[in-house]
Design a protein around this nucleic acid. Sequence first.
DNA 1: ATTTGTCTGTACCGATTGGTACAAACCAGC
DNA 2: GCTGGTTTGTACCAATCGGTACAGACAAAT
Lengths: 197, 197
Amino acid sequence: MPWEKSFDENQALDAAMQVFWHKGYEAASMADLLAATGLTRGSLYNAFGGKPALFERALLRYDQDYRSRLIAQLEALDDPLEAISTFFTLVVDETRDDPQRKGCFLINTALDCGHHNAKVNQLVTQALTQLQAFFKGRIEVAQARGLSAATLSPETGATALLALLTSIRVLGRGAVPDQTLLTIRDQAMALIGQRAA
Amino acid sequence: MPWEKSFDENQALDAAMQVFWHKGYEAASMADLLAATGLTRGSLYNAFGGKPALFERALLRYDQDYRSRLIAQLEALDDPLEAISTFFTLVVDETRDDPQRKGCFLINTALDCGHHNAKVNQLVTQALTQLQAFFKGRIEVAQARGLSAATLSPETGATALLALLTSIRVLGRGAVPDQTLLTIRDQAMALIGQRAA
DNA sequence: ATTTGTCTGTACCGATTGGTACAAACCAGC
DNA sequence: GCTGGTTTGTACCAATCGGTACAGACAAAT
C-alpha cells in the first residue's frame, strides 16, 4: 500500500547538509533548503519533519559519512604517525580547496553549542571525543613502537592535536592566510615528533 | 540648535555588543537589540543606522575595549612570559566564569567570515594579526633575555599560540569539559617553556 | 478495477524579520 | 517665546520566516 519516494533521501540530505554547513543553522532558510534539495515543501516536511530535525539528520550524516569514515580509514593505516600527518594534511588541503570555506560542519556547530538541543550538542561532543580518542590511540601505538618520544602524555598530546585541528578549521574559514594553516599543521607534526607529510 | 541624546551611546553599544556576542549576527534580532539597549526603534536607527552598522560598531568597540586594552596592559608587564601566561589564564577563567559561554566576539565572528562585509572581515583579520604580533614580541623579548629557549622561531611560536587561543575560545563554548581547556593552556605554556601561572 | 495509504505540490497561515515615515517632544539660540 | 534642527516614540510597511492544510497524484494490494 505504501509508495516509494520519488527522490533519493540521502541525496536530498547531502544537499541540505551543504546548505547548513555553509550558512549555519540560523542563516539557512527553508527556502534555501528547498532550492538546494530540489524538493517541494510537502515532500521535505513529510520526509524530514522540519528544520531542526533536518539539521540533526544532516549533522548526523556528516558525522557518519565524513568524520567516522575518515577516522576508520586512517586507523587502518599501519604507521600511526602517518595516520595523523595524513589527517592534518588532508584537512589543510580540504580547507584550501573549498571555495566556500565551509570549514568543518561539526566544529562550526560546536561554536553554536548553546543554541541547539541536547541531541545536537551530544553529537558534537561525542564526535570531538572520538577524534581525541583517535589521536590518543595513534600516539600510544607510536610510542609503543618507539616511533614517538615517550615523554609526551598521549592524553595531553591528543588534546593538543584536537586544539590545533579546531583552530585550522576555524581560522581556515578566511581569517588568516593559508600559510598560517600550514604552520599550525607543522606544529601538530612537531608535537608528535614528525615532519609534515 | 542641536539636542543632546537622552541616552549614553556607549552604554547602548555595550548592550548591543552583548547580544551580538552571545547570539551571533543572524540570530540577534532587532527586537533583541531594542530590548537590550532599552532604546526605541527611532532612537536606535537614528543613532546607529541599522543592523549591519550597529554590528560593526559593536565589534569595533569589543576590539578596542577588550582586546586592544588587554594586550596593552599585558605588554606593560616586565616579564614577557608572565604576560603570555597571564593572558591564557585570564582567557580560560573568563571562559569558565561566563554562564553564557559567549567565547570571544572576534573569534566567533571569524567563523562567519564569509557572511560579513569587507570592513568586518578586515577588523577580524587585523585583530588576529595584532594578537599574533603580541605573542611574537613577547617571545622575542623572552629569548633575548634568555628566559625562553632560542630554538623556537618567534613567528612559528606566535602562530601556535594564536591557534591554541582560538581553540580554547571555540571549544570553551561548551563542546568539551573545562579540564580540556586547562590542558590546552598548559600546552601553550609548555610551548614557550613556562609552567602555567 | 477498486481500494488504501502514502507522497507531492500548492495555497495559505500567523508571526516575525529589518526598515521607514512622520508627528510629537524637546532643547539651544535668538 | 518663538524658531530651527534633533531626537524620540509609534504606527506602519513589504518581505520573509517556519510551518500547516489539504486536494490530487500515485503505486501497491486485493
